[in-house]
């Protein structure tokens, strides 16, 4: 324990931002995630070149989409990533129900957050495509509709998480909802599919261009990149949640110690706070003081 830890403020000047930076000496990054981040960044530049410049427009298939086909290189990877993310949420939920350890719960939570972002991206790109191909921002297309329902289900999942303060209760309930939400995905998909097939008007053009050569490469590249971006974001959200959970727990410990000290006499306050801080691992104590201040 450094002498810094004895002072509840960690010896920092509360007026400057310096303390804020010291709060996260390593941020949420590690060596591995930094390398992944750099690779993703470089690959994104290469991907944009392939998808927007190098690959040819779609002019061979029956209802040729021309340059419009390029939105698919973003839309399909986003859709793949969101399904992967919700699958990981379900795995994390089941893992939590079996093992009851914090890590599984945080995995489910982090993955759902990133999944919701990718679902939003899928919906927006799908809608833009529909605006050009169908002439309207929204059609009750089976895939678009079931994706929207899935989006709302996982918004609910995140709302449930943010509404429960007790981490154990939150983890357990969220795990049940995480499983139910994933089970629900195929049910919604099939019911919407049947529903649409009943009222199918004139055939609307879908995402079915001729995919070969550089176009196929762009699509595959995009999917791999989408998964890599998902993994990178998920790692950071996971670490963020982990730090937040521990910050909360330690802040509570310190506050309890302070209240106890108040009860036993004002003169002992500083000493008790120091004891509480001293009993914690290095690094964490500076964080919680920042919050309590």
């Amino acid at each position: 324990m450094s002498p810094d830890n004895v002072d509840p403020r960690g010896g920092r000047d509360p007026g400057t931002g310096a303390g804020l930076f010291r709060m996260h000496p390593d941020g949420t990054a590690s060596r591995g995630s930094r390398i992944l981040g750099i690779v993703v960044l470089l690959a994104s530049a290469a991907f944009l070149f392939v998808a927007l410049v190098a690959s040819p427009p779609d002019d061979q298939s029956e209802n040729a989409m021309g340059d419009l086909v390029r939105i698919m290189y973003l839309h399909v990877p986003a859709a793949v990533a969101c399904y992967l993310a919700f699958f990981v949420t379900a795995v994390g939920s089941i893992g939590y129900l079996r093992k009851r350890t914090e890590g599984w719960d945080l995995l489910a939570a982090a993955s759902a957050e990133v999944g919701v972002v990718f679902t939003a991206l899928t919906l927006v790109t799908g809608s833009i495509w529909g605006h050009i191909a169908w002439g309207s921002w929204w059609e009750w297309d089976a895939r678009l509709t079931s994706t929207l329902v899935m989006f709302l289900v996982y918004i609910g999942y995140l709302a449930l998480r943010s509404a429960i303060l007790d981490p154990v209760v939150r983890a357990k309930r969220a795990a049940i909802v995480g499983v139910v939400a994933f089970v629900n995905v195929p049910i919604v998909h099939y019911s919407v599919d049947w529903w649409r097939s009943l009222h199918q008007g004139p055939t609307i053009s879908r995402f079915d261009p001729t995919i070969d050569g550089l176009k196929l490469f762009a699509l595959m590249f995009g999917m791999l990149l989408g998964i890599a971006v998902y993994v990178w974001l998920m790692i950071h959200r996971f670490r963020m949640q982990y730090a937040a959970a521990h910050l909360e727990a330690r802040g509570l410990d310190l506050a309890l110690a302070e209240r106890r000290a108040e009860a036993s006499g004002a003169s002992a306050t500083a000493q008790a706070a120091a004891t509480a801080a001293g009993s914690e691992p290095v690094g964490a104590s500076t964080v919680e003081k920042e919050v309590l201040r």
Binding site: V149, L152, G156, N184, S191, W194, W195, L198
Partner: peptide
């Protein structure tokens, strides 16, 4: 405490297939 607003948000998208199937 927030159950009045949370319950419909959680429940209604999940039962969307029931609404579709029962209506049909």
């Amino acid at each position: 405490r927030v159950r009045d607003s949370l319950l419909p948000l959680l429940l209604l998208p999940i039962v969307a297939p029931v609404l579709i199937a029962a209506s049909q």
